[in-house]
Design a binder for these strands. Structure first.
Lengths: 77, 77
DNA sequence: CGGTTGATATAGCAGCTGGTATATGCTGGT
DNA sequence: ACCAGCATATACCAGCTGCTATATCAACCG
């Protein structure tokens, strides 16, 4: 946990989603949130709640090497 | 997913937590939410967001037989 | 060309969340 | 008896969420 919080939570979300090759709608479904939440995160309008960050971290872990650098960059600690 | 939503989400939360023998604070930490959220859920003041329900379902699945009946009762579908 | 479909962006609003703070009761220790 | 610690309950408020709805744009297709 403990993702960096500035200035790039938006990047984390968008990049994670792109690496999974999912639309905002499908990524949202995978996380268990609404598509609007993902959209707002990516456009910097709101920040993900901690439980959502935890899910994103979990997805990155499941991706193996594909998600490793993002894990290090945003969840190191 | 698709937990029943009435009249007993509060019971689901409290019962799940009790079976894990955790305080509200520790259960909250396990879920990735604040202790206040768990407290509000158990006292019927608010309902868990979908992503939180998903986490609760996940915990119940990890509990094996201990959580089986709750899964059936609240997450059947 | 016009129509449809999928993906994205944005708004408004009721309801939920986390942080901070206060209060109660209970247990264990001095 | 006093008190520190823990678990619980509740309040307030800024920020986030889901829902419903609208709008734009690109790709496809008849």
């Amino acid at each position: 946990m403990a993702a960096i919080n500035q200035p790039t939570l938006a990047e984390l979300v968008r990049e994670s989603r792109h690496r999974l090759e999912l639309s905002q709608t499908k990524f949202a479904a995978k996380l268990g949130v609404s598509f609007q939440s993902v959209n707002r995160w990516e456009n910097g309008r709101t920040n993900p709640l901690p439980i959502a960050l935890k899910r994103i971290e979990h997805l990155l872990r499941q991706m193996g090497d594909t998600g490793k650098d993002l894990l290090v960059k945003y969840f190191s600690e």
